[in-house]
Structure formats: structure tokens, C-alpha cells
Simulated scan of single mutants.
Amino acid sequence: MKLLNAQDLATEAAPAAGALLTVANDVDVQTLDLTGVQRIDLAFPKFADGRAFSQAFELRRRLGFAGVIRATGDVLVDQLLQMRRCGFSEAVLRADQDPAVGEKLLQHYSGFYQGDATDLQPRFAKTA
């Protein structure tokens, strides 16, 4: 998972027209036209509002979106592991969050027993 901060966004190149879709967390993602979309920004307006987790999971698992899904808004390092498991590929951290701490947290677990949005097969079903 790629972690970004305000400095990264300032130097980021603008995406091509139609390649970026910014989605509010109350939108039903199944109603979206994803033709030509390369990146979807999902919003976390506050830490306690997790609807974007469900949106990311639906985009990856049910709709098969293979592009970049970016978390924006009130994004804390505490959420990163769950974000990655729900299908997020990037996160723009809140200004007071340390990307180094986020990277360390993402490396803490080597695997999970159950499948998730990007690794569908449960651990018990994997061959050595």
C-alpha cells in the first residue's frame, strides 16, 4: 500500500480527463460507470465513518475494479491494515500522521487466516 501526505499531493501529476473518479461515501458504487477510470478516491470525512471500507470492498470484489483505490480525508495509520484488506491501494494520511509508523504497522502481520478483497483464498486452503 502506498502512503501519501500533503507534500506528495503537491507534486503529483494531474490524472488524464476521465481517469479519476472522486466518490462521496454515501454513493452506491454499483451505480458508477467505471469505463476508463484508473483511480477512484474514496472519502473518509471523519475517523468513525467507515462506509468507504465497504465501497472499496465492493469495487474490488464485486465489480472487479483493478485500478488504484485511494483513501482520502480523515485517514489515520490505525486504519491502514484494514484499508489494504478491503482493497485500498493508496492512502493520503492526515497531516498529523507519521508515514513511517504506517509502514511499520503494515509490515507487522505476515498473513491472515481468512481471505480479503485482494487475496481471496483463505490461508487454510493455500498450498505450501
Rank of each mutant, 00 (worst) to 15 (best):
L76W: 02
M1A: 14
E58Y: 06
E90K: 01
G18P: 07
L21S: 06
S54W: 03
A100Y: 01
L80T: 04
T35K: 04
A91H: 00
H108I: 08
Y113W: 13
E12L: 13
D33L: 08
L32P: 01
E58V: 13
V75P: 06
Q121A: 15
L21E: 03
F53C: 01
G36W: 00
Q121F: 10
F124R: 13
K104Y: 08
L93E: 02
D98K: 06
F53E: 02
Q7R: 14
R84G: 10
L9H: 08
A14Q: 10
Q30E: 14
V68I: 12
L59M: 09
C86R: 00
V77G: 08
G67F: 12
P99A: 11
K46P: 05
A117C: 05
D96S: 13
A14M: 09
Q38G: 13
A66S: 15
L34N: 05
L32I: 05
G50S: 06
T22P: 12
R123H: 14
A48H: 05
P122C: 10
H108R: 13
F47I: 02
G111T: 13
A43E: 09
Q97C: 03
G111F: 11
A43Q: 09
N25D: 15
V68G: 12
Q38H: 04
Q121S: 15
S89P: 09
L80V: 05
I40A: 06
R84T: 04
L81I: 11
D74P: 02
V29D: 04
Q55M: 11
L21G: 03
D28Y: 03
K126A: 11
D41L: 07
R85I: 00
A16I: 02
R39A: 04
R60G: 05
V37L: 02
P15G: 06
V92N: 03
A100E: 13
K2C: 06
A52T: 01
D96N: 13
R62N: 15
R70G: 12
Q97Y: 04
V101G: 00
R51C: 11
F88H: 01
G102S: 09
R39S: 02
E103M: 12
F47A: 01
F65N: 07
L42V: 00
Q38T: 09
G50M: 05
F57V: 00
F124V: 14
Q7M: 14
L93I: 02
T72Q: 14
V23K: 11
T127Y: 12
A16Q: 12
D116A: 03
A6W: 08
T127H: 15
A91Q: 00
L120V: 11
L105F: 09
R84N: 07
T31A: 13
F44S: 00
G87F: 02
Q97F: 03
D8I: 03
L106S: 00
S89Q: 10
R61G: 08
A17K: 14
V92T: 06
P45G: 04
L3I: 05
K46N: 09
F65K: 08
L21H: 04
G73D: 04
A14R: 14
Q38C: 09
F112K: 10
